[in-house]
């Protein structure tokens, strides 16, 4: 796939923008390139985050992977600071895990090469 690393960067870009938008103040990112996949881990504070924002995040990430949608629209991710492209991120990843407690959220995204 062309621009694979750039696409991973765009996913990171989009999610940082989203976490800022929903009120997170402390965001940590870890990107790991493994032999067969990329693992992107985000952790951030949840003090100001509303439940509806998390629901939207989960609903968008929980869409099926779609290579035809990714191929056309991936360059839009991370481009806009007034709206989000979370559903495209959902179509670009193979799987995800999310866990939230009162103070912290951890989100792990898996994208096969």
């Amino acid at each position: 796939m062309r621009h694979n690393k750039k696409r991973v960067s765009k996913i990171v870009d989009e999610l940082i923008s989203y976490f800022f938008k929903i009120g997170s103040k402390n965001i940590h990112i870890d990107v790991l390139e493994e032999k067969k996949q990329y693992v992107i881990t985000f952790s951030c504070d949840t003090k100001n985050i509303k439940e509806s924002d998390i629901n939207l995040l989960v609903r968008c990430l929980n869409t099926y992977k779609s290579e035809e949608m990714e191929e056309y629209y991936w360059e839009l991710t991370g481009e806009c600071d007034t709206d989000s492209e979370l559903s495209i991120v959902g179509m670009m990843i193979d799987n995800f895990e999310i866990s939230i407690n009162d103070q912290n959220m951890e989100l792990i995204l898996y994208r096969k090469k």
């Binding site: 949840t46 985050i49 439940e51 998390i54 989960v58 990430l61 929980n62 869409t63 099926y64 799987n95 995800f96 895990e97 999310i98 866990s99 939230i100 407690n101 009162d102």
Partner: peptide, 11 residues
């Protein structure tokens, strides 16, 4: 708020 989800759940 406490929440945990592992993996894509949609069919």
């Amino acid at each position: 708020m406490r929440f945990k989800l592992k993996g894509k759940t949609k069919p």
